[in-house]
Design a protein around this nucleic acid. Structure first.
Lengths: 112, 112
DNA sequence: TGACAATATTGCTATTTGGTGATATAGTCA
DNA sequence: TGACTATATCACCAAATAGCAATATTGTCA
């Protein structure tokens, strides 16, 4: 049983992961460290927003950053993120399968 | 690499977990199924709010429910939740330890 | 120094949502 | 049927925040 303070901390971490844009940034960084500009290209988001979301990920301790001249290179600081996503994706898959299985046969096939 | 739709689904699930009240409900249910009234007592929240948050957990497929006469009994539908929380708690612990280790010796001891 | 490029920050708006009181719904018991 | 209990829903408000345009900051290069 977790006390209220810990529940707050746990929920704060989940909140950081509860945004598609930030998940997208993380999954690009999963290939390896990237600069902000590279993440702009990769995600198609505006500069201000990418910078802001990276700041949140950094504050949460999920990514690290390092200046390289004029650039700033971000990297995954805690690979735990991907274990989490793995679990969630697994649930999504099994939910989808369950729903598929509950459909009548006739409704299932798409074309053949 | 997850497509935008999947990122959306993943983030939606994280969002459900990103609230202390809902985490509290889940951890009480982890002991076993409970009625709404029992959850009212356990959490100290108002009835309308508990009902609302349970509804969200139900929609997300994290809990199941079952009428029992006048009562409605909720139960954990997907124990994956606790694997997730375990990972997050582990990170919180290691972050705390890292921060502790980075403090100067003098500042560490509380009283002796 | 000045011109330029990369990143961060600020001020803002629109949207979302947790919590609430009031009310509706569904079930029990007489 | 009516009185009562348990749960759900409604309408609302206040707080949080994603995204944006504009601007500030920090670094490079001449």
């Amino acid at each position: 049983m977790l006390d209220p303070t810990t529940l707050e901390s746990v929920s704060r971490l989940f909140k950081v992961l509860a945004e598609p844009t930030r998940l997208d940034l993380l999954q690009h960084l999963n290939r390896g460290p990237l600069t902000v500009s590279e993440l702009l290209d990769a995600t198609g988001q505006k500069q201000a927003n990418v910078s802001k979301q990276l700041g949140l990920l950094f504050t949460a301790g999920l990514v690290s950053r390092e200046r390289d001249g004029n650039l700033v290179r971000y990297a995954i600081a805690d690979p735990m993120v991907f274990d989490l996503c793995e679990l969630v994706c697994g649930k999504l898959r099994s939910d989808a399968e369950r729903q598929l299985a509950s459909l009548p046969r006739r409704a299932r096939a798409k074309r053949g």
